[in-house]
């Protein structure tokens, strides 16, 4: 347990996190290793765990019938994979695939949701860390849909 707590503290996502909150989150955490090509999760699966990447790269994909999978983002060390665990119905809407050897911390969603509900200080600290991640991804998505490098005519 202490090892996980230490690893969590090193992760940029939890920079300046209070020690007691770190211990609470560590209680929901476990280590993961994904080989290249392994899926962290797939569309439609229950969103019962999200991931903090420590090492390696993860591709987020959407598949349409008759087409090759489209990668719309890649995430690397220090970043978070997965948002759907935060809101009902807690199911993944995308695929997340390791494109190289990935080491990550997985955090049990139900466990952390429960702790946040019980300790709103922890919940608010988590929200302050997640929201900027979402906002940055929203901005990236806005820019992406503009297709700025395409021709205007």
């Amino acid at each position: 347990m202490e090892g996980l707590e230490h690893i969590l503290r090193q992760h940029p996502f939890f920079a300046d996190f209070a020690p007691e909150h770190g211990a609470l989150v560590a209680g929901c955490a476990r280590n993961h290793r994904f080989d290249p090509g392994d899926y962290l999760f797939r569309e439609g699966d229950p969103a019962d765990e999200f991931f903090l990447i420590r090492h390696g790269k993860v591709a987020l994909e959407i598949v349409a019938p008759g087409q090759a999978p489209i990668v719309f983002a890649t995430l690397g060390p220090g970043e978070i994979v997965g948002e759907a665990w935060l809101v009902p119905p807690y199911r993944w809407t995308i695929d997340a695939r390791a494109t190289e050897l990935v080491r990550a911390i997985g955090i049990d969603a139900a466990c952390l949701r429960g702790k946040c509900e019980a300790d709103h200080h922890l919940g608010y600290e988590m929200m302050k860390r997640f929201l900027p991640v979402f906002i940055r991804r929203l901005h990236a998505t806005q820019l992406q849909i503009l297709d700025v490098y395409g021709k205007k005519r």
Binding site: A68, P69, V71, T74, R136, H139
Partner: peptide, 23 residues
Amino acid sequence: VTVDHAEADWHGNVGVVPALIPR
């Protein structure tokens, strides 16, 4: 280097270039 869109055979970054800045 990053690309806005790629198929799964691209092994580099996918996403917009501002997203590379914090990394």
